[in-house]
Amino acid sequence: MPTQPKANRGPSAGPENRRALIVAAREVFASEGLSAPLSSVARKAGVGQGSLYRHFPDRTALAVAVFEENLTELELFIDRPESTLRDLLERVIDQAVVSTALIDLIWAHSHDERVVHLGDRLRDMVERKVQREKESGVLGAHVTVEDVLLAVSMLAGVLARSDADERRAVGSRAVVLFTLAFGPR
């Protein structure tokens, strides 16, 4: 028996389709790598390719959407009074482990106007966290925002180049090193 096609709900389905595409992109690129066909993303999201391209005209647009969502999650978390810089680094690991294929794409397009604001958002978040950690005495006075941004960049880069089954262990070792380097002297 042939399957019935989904009813076209028109523009009202847009936000739901966009969200489904972002979730599907994470899963597809995590399992198949960056060269996975975009049709696989659309199929996994349960939408047509037309819907995919309406929301995301290219891979960069899709990667930016994934990272925007990642940053929103980090911002909500990092603004909690009990969150720490170590917690931020642990969350970066969690996100990088499932977004490794997209990290290289974002870095390759770092000057693209769609990508630049991601770095600005990360910088603002790190500035807030560094200031709070210094005021509480957890972070050494020698640590700068640039140091923490470098650590995040190094962490994402090494995770993107590590074997999938080793990423968590590699990330944990890196966080220990950063914690020791960033502590008060």
Rank of each mutant, 00 (worst) to 15 (best):
residue 45 A to P: 01
residue 136 S to E: 10
residue 96 A to Q: 15
residue 7 A to K: 14
residue 140 G to L: 05
residue 81 P to G: 08
residue 102 L to W: 11
residue 115 V to M: 05
residue 42 A to N: 02
residue 8 N to L: 03
residue 60 T to M: 02
residue 147 D to L: 06
residue 147 D to V: 04
residue 97 V to D: 02
residue 138 V to S: 11
residue 60 T to Y: 01
residue 98 V to R: 08
residue 164 A to R: 13
residue 176 V to C: 00
residue 64 V to E: 08
residue 11 P to G: 12
residue 174 A to D: 06
residue 126 V to Y: 02
residue 34 L to H: 00
residue 77 F to H: 13
residue 68 E to S: 12
residue 134 K to T: 02
residue 120 D to I: 09
residue 66 V to E: 07
residue 158 V to N: 10
residue 143 V to H: 04
residue 183 G to F: 01
residue 56 F to H: 03
residue 155 L to D: 06
residue 69 E to G: 10
residue 141 A to L: 13
residue 92 V to S: 00
residue 10 G to Y: 08
residue 123 R to I: 00
residue 120 D to N: 12
residue 100 T to Q: 07
residue 148 V to M: 04
residue 134 K to I: 10
residue 2 P to Y: 02
residue 2 P to S: 12
residue 175 V to M: 01
residue 96 A to R: 13
residue 78 I to R: 09
residue 122 L to T: 14
residue 156 A to K: 15
residue 172 S to G: 05
residue 87 D to S: 13
residue 38 L to Y: 06
residue 108 A to S: 13
residue 169 A to Q: 14
residue 9 R to A: 15
residue 182 F to M: 10
residue 168 R to N: 03
residue 55 H to Y: 10
residue 57 P to Y: 05
residue 169 A to F: 04
residue 99 S to K: 12
residue 24 A to H: 08
residue 69 E to F: 04
residue 28 V to Y: 05
residue 102 L to T: 04
residue 32 E to K: 14
residue 149 L to I: 10
residue 182 F to S: 11
residue 8 N to A: 10
residue 152 V to M: 09
residue 130 V to F: 09
residue 127 E to W: 00
residue 36 A to C: 01
residue 125 M to T: 11
residue 111 H to D: 12
residue 49 Q to M: 10
residue 51 S to N: 11
residue 150 L to I: 06
residue 138 V to F: 05
residue 136 S to D: 11
residue 154 M to L: 12
residue 123 R to T: 15
residue 9 R to E: 10
residue 137 G to M: 01
residue 78 I to M: 14
residue 116 V to I: 13
residue 182 F to D: 10
residue 54 R to P: 00
residue 45 A to Q: 01
residue 106 I to T: 05
residue 135 E to S: 13
residue 55 H to R: 02
residue 107 W to L: 14
residue 179 T to L: 02
residue 158 V to F: 13
residue 158 V to C: 06
residue 7 A to D: 10
residue 104 D to A: 14
residue 176 V to D: 15
residue 65 A to Q: 06
residue 28 V to I: 13
residue 100 T to E: 12
residue 28 V to D: 04
residue 149 L to W: 02
residue 171 G to H: 11
residue 60 T to P: 01
residue 50 G to A: 15
residue 154 M to N: 13
residue 182 F to P: 08
residue 48 G to D: 11
residue 167 R to A: 03
residue 7 A to Q: 09
residue 97 V to Q: 05
residue 171 G to V: 03
residue 131 Q to M: 09
residue 151 A to G: 13
residue 63 A to T: 08
residue 164 A to K: 15
residue 41 V to T: 04
residue 76 L to W: 06
residue 173 R to V: 05
residue 172 S to M: 12
residue 10 G to H: 03
residue 182 F to W: 15
residue 89 L to W: 15
